[in-house]
């Protein structure tokens, strides 16, 4: 899947969409640096608040700040502007732990797209389908959100837009059966990529999570040789609950990666750092706009650089 990485404007685009984030964090750190010439407790407290405001999460923030505090003491760092570099390095370490681009190269491939309600699963599927189509792949979509009103129609519109066939049944039918059909259709039509849409579900709904497990089992059973990815779509606007989402979805269907959407707003998306540090689930892609092109591979270096440049 070289097509993904060839896009030259990726870095700029990400930078642009993160510029609001960047202004936020960087400005405030600059302010801090000029305000606190010497490092004291108040400085660390402020630092803590900056990270919390970025939705990094209380636990991760405390750990990050504590680490930095220790390092500052150990290395006897006297200037607060060096702290920025330290922080950058720490965030990068955390984000790099799981990032690995190799998943994109194996075909045939099944992508099971999961997440809570309203995070942008169907839109992301449209964008993903477009990326694979542009790369010359045969793409099939499975309309396994049989619950929400007009979810099937929404996916069909995307199918028409990008030129991918949609495997569907009527609303209210068993999503497992839709996925079963879609897997067999993909095999017989020799599709390279099958992307399965699922209904949004809050992770604390037991029955719905069971349903998802069943869908996951059907894919494993019916197409074991396919390269399966279970991708959790996360809304960048989400706060601490994202950790709980990632945890529960991981337990249920062993998610292999995260797609972070809506990063073109003012939300900081810092929760990704929290999730990576606590759960070690790599971020695969980021959604940075409403356009069909606005989905890029996640790059830890770029992400952190864009935050701090």
């Amino acid at each position: 899947m070289k097509g993904f990485l060839k896009k030259v404007d990726i870095f700029d685009k990400l930078k642009k969409s993160l510029s609001k984030t960047r202004t936020g964090i960087t400005d405030r750190i600059e302010q801090l640096v000029s305000y606190y010439k010497n490092i004291d407790d108040d400085f660390f407290e402020e630092l803590e608040e900056i990270l919390i405001t970025a939705d990094v999460g209380v636990q991760t923030t405390l750990r990050l700040v504590e680490d930095i505090e220790q390092e500052v003491r150990a290395k006897k760092i006297g200037q607060s502007d060096l702290v920025k570099e330290l922080l950058k390095g720490k965030m990068l370490d955390i984000l790099r732990k799981g990032s690995d681009g190799s998943w994109q190269d194996k075909f045939p491939k099944v992508l099971l797209i999961v997440g809570v309600n309203g995070v942008g699963k169907t839109t992301t599927i449209g964008k993903l389908a477009k990326l694979y189509k542009d790369d010359g792949r045969k793409v099939l979509l499975a309309a396994a959100d049989t619950f929400r009103a007009a979810a099937i129609e929404q996916l069909e519109v995307w199918g028409q837009r990008v030129g991918a066939e949609v495997i569907k049944q009527s609303k209210g039918s068993d999503p497992g059966a839709v996925v079963f059909d879609a897997v067999h259709a993909s095999k017989s039509r020799k599709a390279d990529v099958l992307i399965c849409d699922t209904a949004g579900r809050l992770h604390n709904k037991k029955n719905l999570m069971e349903e998802l497990k069943k869908i996951n089992r059907i894919i494993d059973r019916e197409w074991p040789e396919a390269n399966k990815e279970v991708l959790l779509v996360l809304d960048a606007t989400t706060g601490q609950n994202a950790i709980s989402q990632a945890k529960t979805f991981k337990e249920a269907v062993d998610i292999s990666g995260i797609i972070l959407t809506k990063l073109d707003g003012t939300a900081k998306g810092g929760i990704v750092i929290g999730i990576n540090s606590e759960l070690n689930i790599p971020v695969r892609m980021v959604g940075t706009g409403e356009g069909v092109e606005d989905l890029q591979p996640f790059d830890a270096q770029n992400f952190v650089e864009a935050l701090f440049s």
Binding site: I52, T237, T266
Partner: peptide, 12 residues
Amino acid sequence: VDAMTGQDAVTV
């Protein structure tokens, strides 16, 4: 407003 919104809720 989504109840799960994080710090950005104020800006929105």
